[in-house]
Amino acid sequence: MSTHSPFRRFLPRPRARTRLYCFPHAGGAASTFHSWAHLFPETVELVAVQYPGRHDRYLDPMPDSIPELAEEIVRSIEMPLDRPTAFFGHSMGAMVAFEAARRLQPRFPSPLAGLFVSACKAPAERTPRGLSFDEDELRAYLRELGGEGAQKLEENEELWQLAFPVISGDLRVVEKYEYTAGAPLTCPLIAMGGNRDLSVAPADLELWKNYAIRGAEVHVVDGGHFYFDESLPRVIGILTTLLAQLSLQRV
């Protein structure tokens, strides 16, 4: 069992009205959200999730499945929550955040103010891509997804060799994920994505409505799979507005 906390606060705001836990994509780290923390207003404290096997958790083994990873994260969250709290997960992070949200809601209402799932198909709609985890295949896959991170890996062979074990390890748990049906979430659910994402279409986001008792609110912005690379200030603006609304609903 690791003694490292999975949470990183780049800009602590103990008096913030709301708290947003952010779960990164496959191969990603808490640092993905470093710039986000400084773009949010004082009313929002961002807490980035650091998965095992990277950066200061390099020696911590990755759990064998998405649910196990979600369990580890939930065990580290102090309960009861001291303020309106939401989860935001991107791609693989949306899967982890969804499974974590399920584990936080054994009662009604959910302790979560909201769940944001980004660039991810609904759980029962996911099918394995059949990846062989060959290096060339994974390079092509990341190239297809696009984003600033993929471009940096394309340009830096040393960085790729460091990142490859983490990316392949994360994608292995994504590939083996099997949704187990259960009660719908009782917290608000917001699905977000880019209008040029070749892997998750706006119609895919609509299917998240089946996973929460109030359905799902969908927001589509201009961009690909990593749409926030192109329009981060706009995305932060949307999240800030929605978090303020969710916070008021909790009062």
Rank of each mutant, 00 (worst) to 15 (best):
S2Q: 10
S2E: 11
S2H: 05
H4Q: 15
F10C: 01
A26D: 06
A29T: 15
L46G: 04
V47H: 06
P52Y: 07
R54G: 02
Y58Q: 14
P63N: 14
S65R: 04
P67N: 09
P67V: 10
E71D: 14
I73A: 09
V74H: 01
P80V: 14
A86N: 03
M92V: 11
V96W: 03
A97F: 04
R103V: 10
Q105R: 12
P111A: 13
G114M: 09
L115Q: 07
A119W: 02
A119L: 02
A119M: 07
K121V: 05
K121G: 01
A122H: 04
E125W: 00
R129A: 09
E137T: 09
R139F: 05
Y141K: 12
R143G: 13
E144S: 12
Q161W: 00
I167R: 02
I167P: 00
S168C: 11
G169N: 10
G169F: 00
A181Q: 12
P188H: 04
R196A: 14
D197P: 02
D204Q: 01
D204V: 04
E206H: 09
L207T: 15
R214C: 03
R214A: 14
V220P: 02
Y227N: 03
F228L: 12
P233Y: 07
R234N: 10
L239F: 00
